[in-house]
Amino acid sequence: MASPLRVLVHGGGIGGLTLATALARRGHTVEVAEIRDRLDALGVGIIQPSNALHVMREIGVLDDCLKAGYEWEILTIADPAGNTLARIPQPRMGDVPSNNGIPRPALAAVLGAAATAAGATLRFSATVTELHDDGEGVDVTLSDGSAGRWDLVVGFDGIGSPLRTRLYGERYAPRYTGFANWRVTVPRQARVDGVVMSTAGQDGKALLTPITDELMYLGAVFAEKEDFRPDPERAHEQLAERLTAFSGPVAEALATVNGPADVVHSRISQVTVEEPWHVGRVVLAGDAAHACTPHIAQGAAMAVEDAVVLAESLDAEPSVPAALAAWEARRRPRAMWVQAMSHAVLKQETGGETTPEEDELLKIGIPGAAHVLAKPY
């Protein structure tokens, strides 16, 4: 489009800040409405695979991400005792690294600084309370009392997206998979020079992921009842109870956890918006439209891909509606493939019954999936 747009991004997470940076660098007027009172990040660390790092280079923050994190190239498969079964080189997209582990707060700081430097405005403690799309623009009132008119509103507001509920009601509420993710930051062991993944069938899965030279996180996936919540006084003990099938480096990492405060527990749910991801000039992206399980480490990568492809589509198309249609046509197949592959891997690792379609995906496997996704988005 020849004229700069006014764009409201609802949500200041990884995808929202990436979009804000990409659009503001192109000369658009961008405001990010974030419900939290500051840029922070829940959780511990995150993997940036090569396709996500390619996006970071596009928005000018690759070096900052690598400086704040831990670059790695080899995926290690180990048995529950920590004995190495395979070391698998990971693919690169172009000339960026294969992977980077990074603390979530550090990534939030990098992306927030980039968005601000590009000219985007970050508005905290704010969420949409009123929204009216008349076809030519969107009038929005935020919870802090501010109001404005926008050419486009983008919902990067997560798996529990309020904008998704506003557009579609409860039709696409998150679906719990029956599994939950436990994570805790611990000192990095010298032998953990990339992700070390161990599975024990129905006894669960454990991963060690380096996120700085000094730190890594211990992640574990187990079946949990939908209403389960960790005891805030003994979450570390509950995690230890679930990891009894693991010894070696996993047990050593667990031994460094002295209390419950740093243990993060999150239910693993999925969202698949089967209708178009946009209604008029309001569009959903990232987890709001297609949240997946974390089993191939691509959830955040899909969000940042969504962001830069949306910016490119707005460049290429003559109108906002045309850009949204072109963007979704390009993004939906890839995001749905990631969701299907992630869920198939979850079922395989936990002994679940798979469909013939999932069996075909599982022939590709996690290493093969990395090669598929290191191709252009």
Results as ranks from 00 to 15, higher is better:
E170I: 00
K225H: 14
Q189G: 09
D203W: 12
L208N: 06
L167K: 02
P187F: 13
V186W: 09
F228M: 06
K225S: 15
F228Y: 15
V221W: 13
A173S: 11
M216L: 08
Y217E: 05
S161M: 07
R183I: 00
D193E: 14
G158L: 10
R171N: 02
K205S: 13
V221G: 01
I159K: 08
G178M: 06
I211S: 05
L207Q: 11
D203E: 15
L218K: 06
T185M: 10
E170T: 13
I211D: 03
E170W: 01
D157P: 09
Q202I: 06
T165F: 10
K205D: 11
L208K: 06
Y176E: 03
D157K: 08
G160F: 05
V184M: 05
S161A: 07
R175N: 01
G178C: 03
L215N: 06
D227P: 03
E170N: 13
K225M: 03
T165D: 09
L208P: 12
N181S: 11
D227W: 07
D213P: 04
P162A: 08
R166L: 02
P162L: 05
D203K: 14
M197R: 15
A223S: 13
A200F: 09
V184A: 09
L167P: 02
A173I: 00
S198Y: 04
V195D: 07
R188D: 01
Y176S: 02
G201I: 09
M197W: 15
D213G: 12
R164I: 00
T199Y: 03
T165A: 14
A206L: 06
F222D: 05
I159S: 10
Y168H: 14
G194N: 09
E214K: 12
T165G: 12
R183T: 09
F179R: 04
P210E: 10
D193P: 01
R183P: 02
F179C: 07
Y172F: 15
L167Y: 06
L167R: 01
R171L: 06
G204K: 10
G178S: 05
D157E: 08
A190K: 13
G201Q: 12
L215R: 14
R164D: 01
Q202T: 14
V184H: 08
Y176D: 04
A173R: 12
T177Y: 05
A223E: 12
V186Q: 09
W182L: 04
N181W: 15
E224D: 14
A206F: 11
L218Y: 03
G201E: 11
D227R: 14
S161N: 08
S198R: 12
T177F: 05
R188H: 06
A180S: 15
A190S: 14
A206D: 10
P162S: 11
Y176R: 01
Y176W: 03
R191C: 09
L218H: 06
K205H: 15
A220T: 04
D203R: 15
R188M: 03
Y217C: 02
D213F: 07
F222A: 03
L167G: 01
E224Y: 12
G201P: 07
